[in-house]
Amino acid sequence: MPQVIEIDDPSDTRLDDFRDLSTADRRPDRPGGRGLVIAEGVIVVRRLLDSPYPLRGLLGIPRRIQELVPDLGDFDGPAYAVSADVMAQVVGFHLNRGVLAAADRAPQPDPAALVDGARMLAVLEGVGDHENLGALFRNAAALSVDGVLLGAGCSDPLYRRSVRVSMGHVLRVPFADLRPWPSGLDLLRAKGFTVAALTPRADAVDLRECKLAGEKVALLLGSEGPGLTDEAIDAADIAVRIPMASGVDSLNVATAGAVAFHALGVS
């Protein structure tokens, strides 16, 4: 059982894992960041508890802490119960969801181990927006993508905003860095994958006609603005596009990923 500890002083150093979460130096992908995984809200905290990330502690209003006690099993660490006002002073903003959990990172899988046994993978290049990254992971979980490989220029999927937007699914979809880039894509071909670059280029193959549904596919998705680099597209086996109405040239990267995951996952 957790140790439920009531605290009314926002300066209490026991709450430091949760302090000033909106400032840049709290980001795990920035110099000075502590690298902690932060989950917000009961649903996301439960997904954290069911993940490989080791729980350090919880912070929340008493009602939310008690709601989570049955899920904590053998965890005997601290669960800090505070008022909503104290919580806002510690965190740096008002948190509607009423509870946070902090966890240590787990080791990333080796890319080769992640690829083994997979049938569909998402491979990202230059996806720097944390909300798009979180939405991509949520879509990947919903549409049976087996893992995500991060190429050059991607943000950290475990930043708090990505975890929140993914509804905690970033904690259950395995991911790894793929280096060097883009020649690391050769690993996927060696494992029997067709590397398909999603691009709005007019000469790309219509997604409905690429005959890859149900096959072993690694789908390349690029940054929110310029999309995939020429180098990444050239390193792919095929370029595919989502047909769109006249006057619309592209979709948000998470939306485009969802459309393609669904199309390619149907055998």
Rank of each mutant, 00 (worst) to 15 (best):
M1Q: 06
D9S: 11
D17A: 09
D17G: 08
D20G: 06
L21A: 13
A24L: 15
D25S: 14
D29L: 10
D29R: 14
A39H: 10
E40T: 01
V45N: 00
V45R: 00
G60E: 00
R63A: 14
Q66N: 15
D76M: 03
P78V: 00
A84V: 05
D85E: 10
A88C: 02
V90K: 04
F93Q: 10
N96L: 15
L100A: 08
L100I: 05
A101C: 13
A103Q: 09
A106I: 01
G117H: 12
E125Y: 05
G128W: 13
E131K: 15
R138N: 15
A140E: 08
A141Y: 06
A142E: 01
L143S: 05
V145D: 05
V145L: 12
G153P: 13
F175T: 00
A176M: 13
S183N: 04
R189E: 04
F193E: 03
T199C: 09
P200G: 10
R201E: 09
A204I: 03
V205W: 12
L207Q: 01
E209F: 11
L219Y: 06
L220K: 02
L221R: 00
G225V: 08
A236I: 09
D237P: 08
D237Q: 05
R241V: 06
I242N: 01
P243V: 11
S246Y: 12
V248W: 12
D249W: 02
S250M: 07
S250I: 04
H262L: 10
